[in-house]
């Protein structure tokens, strides 16, 4: 292989005049973090609502939860992003479609919302499993004390369900961060996108993607560690793995 390694490339100015190549990658990292953060907030909130709906004693709510989850988890993420980005503006009324297309930062919003909804289906399934894993008597005890359905979820079922699903939720959080890389296909210059343009400008493909890999690993290591602390912080004395 005839390849000129050049690890100094990171400190050379990039052709866009926005600083060095390293600055380019870091700006991509920032965008990755912003996209992932917004997507995760959307995934957690909508996923929690849908997950709860799947466990409510209401046929309508169960059906909606079922349809939502199957819709968002049975289509490739890439296809979903294309639908949001390219198809949605065309099928909307003309004015609305035009407004969407001219939205500043359209790739960012599309990616965050698209990844968010995609991941929300997975969060919903996790939460449903967490709630279902609680003894049936817990819901009964809450009801028997006079708590309303909302209060029962808020004070009794959800605090336990979320504790139980924290480890798989960590995985979903990591998946959310990694899945933002798909947004390169709708022109979002997040970390993978910036690594790719660094490769195209400098021809230093190995350096660019080595750096991107390390940055992804670092971010995810921070998330894993933080979630571990969270798990320990909310652990219940004497319960399952608690001390």
């Amino acid at each position: 292989m005839n390849y000129n390694w050049n690890w100094g490339i990171f400190f050379q100015p990039n052709p866009m005049g926005t600083g060095t190549y390293l600055d380019m990658l870091l700006s991509g990292l920032v965008l990755t973090l912003k996209t992932a953060a917004l997507a995760w907030v959307i995934a957690l909130i909508t996923g929690s609502i849908v997950g709860v709906m799947r466990t409510l004693p209401s046929k309508g709510a169960n059906w909606f939860g079922f349809a939502y989850v199957e819709f968002f988890r049975n289509m490739p993420l890439l296809v979903q992003l294309f639908l949001w980005f390219f198809v949605l503006p065309e099928i909307l009324p003309k004015a609305a479609g035009l407004w969407l297309k001219q939205l500043p930062n359209a790739p960012f919003w599309t990616a965050a919302i698209g990844v968010g909804f995609f991941m929300s289906a997975r969060v919903a399934v996790q939460l449903q499993a967490g709630i279902s894993s609680l003894p049936r008597g817990q819901r009964m005890a809450a009801t028997a004390l006079g708590l309303t359905t909302v209060q029962g979820y808020r004070y009794v079922l959800l605090p336990m369900a979320f504790r139980i699903i924290l480890p798989p939720l960590t995985s979903e959080f990591l998946n959310t961060i990694k899945n933002t890389a798909v947004a390169i296909t709708i022109g979002l210059l997040e970390l993978t996108g910036q690594a790719r343009s660094m490769q195209e400008f400098s021809f230093q493909v190995f350096e660019a993607f080595t750096a991107a890999t390390i940055l992804y690993l670092l971010v995810n290591a921070v998330v894993v560690t933080a979630m571990r602390f969270l798990e320990r912080w909310v652990a219940i004395p004497g319960y399952i793995t608690g001390k």
Partner: peptide, 28 residues
């Protein structure tokens, strides 16, 4: 809910809320 709050119920498997301290189980 109002009617149930006036009817005390004790279950076979206790059904205390595991994430709450004993006193908080009584106060919730």
């Amino acid at each position: 809910p109002k009617l149930r709050s006036r009817v005390g119920m004790v279950f076979q498997h206790f059904e205390l809320f595991p994430h709450l301290k004993i006193i908080d189980n009584l106060c919730l």
